[in-house]
Design a protein around this nucleic acid. Structure first.
Length: 210
DNA sequence: ACGACGATTCACT
DNA sequence: GTGAATCGTCGTG
């Protein structure tokens, strides 16, 4: 029963460390949603960001994370949803329970279940299907109440591990949509992928302090 | 109870 | 590129 499955899955214990390293390492892995009937919706992770309180200005300066006790209580390796502008965003809790650290999955390259995803989220241009954090949640038909707080190797939503991408295939940039913490290079995406979020081009050229 | 504020998206110009 | 919609969360009264 405990023999390794192939392809191997990410397990909760894999998220006990630094969310920045984890976000980088997650690129290339596959996010799989298995519908009740057994149909698989899957996408390759091509963009991810890290959040890491309290050293993260995006959290501390703001009173934001501090009071979201429900999110902070989530143990590492479990799914959670941050909401912004009314949209639920899929993340994985990192470090340890009680600490607000996480990886935000920002974009996918659709691999399986394209028809169903298009049904969930009708779009004109195919590339708009999953090229944003709230878009991929909609395309996969994820509902926070059902998924939040479940482990990353759950039957309904799990992660299939891929070999780490070489540095040459990864672009590191500042995070998107923040006021504070813009100087931190905590966003990663697959170089040249047409499936990353539209905000990418300008961010690529951003100069980061050392 | 009320108002301000986004870890976004969409429709425009 | 600019601006509006949107709604749950959080701070204040």
């Amino acid at each position: 029963m405990t023999r390794a499955e192939f392809p191997s899955r990410w397990h909760p214990a894999d998220f006990a460390g630094d969310p920045v390293l984890t976000a980088r390492r997650l690129l290339g892995s596959t996010l799989v949603r298995t519908l009740p009937g057994g149909v698989r919706l899957a996408g390759r992770i091509v963009e991810a960001e890290a959040y890491d309180c309290p050293r993260d200005p995006a959290c501390t300066a703001g009173r934001f994370h501090a009071a979201r006790s429900a999110e902070m209580a989530i143990p590492p390796g479990h799914w959670l949803f941050w909401t912004a502008h009314g949209h639920p965003l899929l993340q994985v809790a990192c470090r340890e329970a009680g600490v607000s650290a996480s990886v935000l999955i920002r974009a996918l390259e659709p691999l399986e279940g394209r028809e169903v995803m298009l049904d969930h989220r009708p779009v004109i241009r195919e590339r708009d299907l999953t090229n944003g954090p709230a878009k991929l949640v909609a395309a996969l038909g994820l509902h926070p109440a059902q998924v939040s707080r479940t482990p990353v190797d759950s039957a309904g939503l799990h992660l299939e591990r891929a070999p780490a991408l070489p540095d040459a295939d990864v672009v590191t940039t500042a995070r998107i949509g923040l006021r504070e913490g813009r100087n931190l290079p905590w966003r990663f995406h697959v170089r040249g992928s047409p499936w990353v979020s539209p905000a990418t081009p300008s961010m690529d050229l951003l100069t980061l302090p050392d």
